[in-house]
Nucleic acid binder design. Structure first.
Lengths: 142, 142
DNA sequence: CTATAACTGAAAATTTTTTTCAATAAGGAG
DNA sequence: CTCCTTATTGAAAAAAATTTTCAGTTATAG
């Protein structure tokens, strides 16, 4: 369990949300998975622990966990439906994703500071954020 | 018109595809738009020039143009449905996107070479590609 | 323990995308 | 230019993904 998700209950409570079996289960499923999962996959896995769980609740829970930055969407050319748990509480990080099995690894360093400053100067944009996704094959899938 | 899209007809023909009014119109709509567009938006604009065009054909055409790298998907937190024309034929490039109006600007320099080499060495991944999206507010929207 | 407001599941609705299939049209051969 | 083959198209239907509605349930503050 990561630094971040250790205190997920507090995070929810702080904002007035309740701690429920559905939320706990969805988060546990994502935490336990080294690979990215779609809402449907999360639903199937979560139902093994929580029989009455509905797919709708999975969607709602994912939206909440995403808003609280406990969970993130993984963007790839194949689609942007799957999600992964946020494991580092370092704030800024990106994803290294295996094209074959979906394994996701976080990495904190992107060294884009100076590139973005130049880009901002050149274009006149007020740059607010950026999103980097690195795709390859993990050691097992090579 | 960009270097790339100047010879889109040849590109299609090379691969055995035909040049049709639908394909021409969809590509023209995307080329003429400084902002990213969803399939639905492309359909609405394209129909002004090509009345009988069907939404299905827009989807099929976009899939083809994407495969041929004449068009690209723009990924943002708000969703990954919209597309933009590829304007530079420099090969590698990324997108700077306005959060407010959807204006898209390409930029070629990401300076990630050494970061990716280190990442590959550290993780054992065989890194194949990466995707960077920078979000901000364009000069007009600030 | 109780009250209350958040949360839930099921069903239905909506939105997005894909498939099917008969009709049409692009473009090479002649 | 005309014919022929085959890619392409539009419409309808189907499938897939996501969201809304609503009545019943449950977490938790007091």
């Amino acid at each position: 369990m990561s630094i971040l998700t250790e205190n997920w209950e507090e995070r929810l409570k702080e904002q007035g949300y309740r701690i429920t079996k559905s939320r706990r289960t969805v988060l546990e499923v994502l935490e336990a998975s080294p690979i990215r999962l779609t809402p449907e996959e999360i639903y199937r896995r979560a139902r093994r622990r929580h029989r009455k769980l509905g797919l709708v609740t999975v969607y709602r829970t994912l939206a909440l966990l995403e808003k609280l930055n406990l969970v993130q969407r993984v963007h790839t050319e194949a689609g942007c439906r799957s999600l992964t748990a946020v494991r580092l509480d370092k704030g800024h990080h990106h994803h290294l994703v295996c094209r074959t099995c979906g394994y996701v690894e976080e990495f904190p360093d992107c060294a884009l500071g100076s590139v973005l400053r130049k880009l901002q100067a050149r274009t006149g944009f007020a740059i607010e954020s950026h999103h980097l996704e690195v795709v390859g094959r993990c050691p097992k899938c090579q």
